[in-house]
C-alpha cells in the first residue's frame, strides 16, 4: 500500500496514489470538461447534419414554418388551438382514464393476490400471466374487433379498456411490492387495536406504501402515455392519429413526427418533475 497523501478530500477519479497528478489515461482525457462538451456538441451536430444532408439528398422539402399553425393560431385577436394541441388533450384524457382504470383494477388484483385465498391467488396469477403474454396490439384488436361488437364498445371505450387492463397487470405488481414493503409489525399493531384487515389497509398500510409505489407508478404512467400511441391503429383521435392525419394531408412527415415526438417528450418530462416533487411530500423518515 502506498502511504496516504494529504489530498484525501479529492473526489475519486481513478486508482493510483493521490499525490501524483492524474495520469493522462484515455478515460481521464475524455472526462475533462472542455473535451466532454466539445465531443457532445460534435456528436449532436453530426446527427443533425447527417439527417439534414440525408433529407436534402432525397429532395425533402422542409416546411417548418407550417408547423406552428398545428399547435395554435391567432387570427384577428382570436386564439385557436391547433390540431396537435387537441390531439395532446385527447392523449392526456385517454391516458388519465386508462390509468384510473388500471389503478382500480391493479389494486383489486394485488389484494386478491395478497388475500391468501387459493381462489384469489389463482385469479390474480391467471390474469397476470394472460396479460403479460399477449402483445398489446393483439389485446387492442381483441377488445375492438371481438369484444367491441359483442358489448357495443366504441373505439374510445375499447382503447381505455385495452390500456387499463394491460397496465393493471403491471400496476398490481407495483401495489403488491409496495404493500409488502410495509413492515409486518404495522399489520400486527393495527390488528392489536381491533382493526379489520380492510381498515388496516385503508388507514395504516396503504398510506405508508404510497412512498414505495410513487416512483414505479410514475414510470408506469409514462409508459402508459407512450403506449397509448398504439390506439391510433383503431383511429382514436389522439396525438399520434392527429399526426398521421396531418401527414396524409400535407406530406410533412419529418416535421410532424419530430413535433409529435417532442410533444410526448415534453409531456412525460413535466410529469417526472411533478412527481419527484410529490415524492418529497410523502417522504417519511423512520
Amino acid at each position: 500500500m502506498t502511504p496516504r497523501s494529504t489530498t484525501t478530500s479529492r473526489p475519486i477519479a481513478g486508482p493510483g496514489p493521490a499525490a501524483t497528478p492524474r495520469p493522462m489515461t484515455l478515460q481521464n482525457w475524455l472526462d475533462a470538461r472542455p473535451v466532454a462538451i466539445a465531443l457532445y456538441l460534435a456528436i449532436m451536430a453530426a446527427i443533425c447534419w447527417s439527417s439534414y444532408v440525408g433529407a436534402q439528398r432525397m429532395g425533402y422539402n422542409w416546411q417548418w414554418y407550417q408547423v406552428p399553425d398545428y399547435l395554435f393560431t391567432i387570427t384577428d385577436d382570436r386564439f385557436r388551438w391547433g390540431e396537435i394541441a387537441v390531439g395532446l388533450v385527447a392523449t392526456v384524457g385517454l391516458s388519465l382514464a386508462s390509468f384510473a382504470l388500471a389503478m382500480a383494477l391493479g389494486l383489486l388484483v394485488a389484494m386478491l393476490r395478497l388475500s391468501g385465498l387459493v381462489v384469489g391467488t389463482a385469479v390474480a396469477v391467471g390474469y397476470l400471466e394472460l396479460i403479460r403474454n399477449i402483445p398489446l396490439l393483439v389485446l387492442l384488436y381483441l377488445f375492438y374487433y371481438v369484444l367491441g361488437p359483442i358489448f357495443a364498445l366504441d373505439r374510445w371505450a375499447a382503447a381505455v379498456l385495452t390500456l387499463g387492463v394491460f397496465h393493471a397487470a403491471l400496476i398490481s405488481e407495483i401495489f403488491r411490492a409496495g404493500i409488502n414493503a410495509v413492515a409486518q409489525g404495522q399489520w400486527e399493531a393495527a390488528a392489536s387495536i381491533g382493526m379489520s384487515r380492510a381498515q388496516a389497509y385503508r388507514w395504516i398500510v396503504l398510506p405508508q406504501s404510497i412512498r414505495f409505489m410513487l416512483p414505479p407508478l410514475t414510470g408506469e404512467f409514462i409508459a402508459l402515455i407512450k403506449s397509448s400511441a398504439i390506439v391510433s391503429v383503431i383511429a382514436v383521435a389522439e396525438l399520434t392519429t392527429v399526426g398521421r392525419n396531418i401527414i396524409s394531408d400535407t406530406f410533412m412527415s419529418f416535421e410532424i413526427w419530430f413535433t409529435v415526438a417532442a410533444v410526448y417528450l415534453g409531456l412525460t418530462l413535466i410529469l417526472s418533475v411533478a412527481v419527484s416533487r410529490l415524492e418529497k411530500r410523502y417522504a417519511v423518515d423512520h
Binding site: 413492515a183 409489525g185 404495522q186 400486527e188 399493531a189 393495527a190 390488528a191 392489536s192 387495536i193 381491533g194 395504516i204 398510506p207 405508508q208 417519511v284 423512520h286
Partner: peptide, 17 residues
C-alpha cells in the same frame, strides 16, 4: 376481543405516517 386486550410490542410499531 382485541379491543379489550391491549398489546405493546418490542419494536413499538407506531404508525410512522
Amino acid at each position: 376481543l382485541r379491543q379489550h386486550v391491549g398489546m405493546v410490542f418490542q419494536q413499538f410499531n407506531l404508525f410512522p405516517h
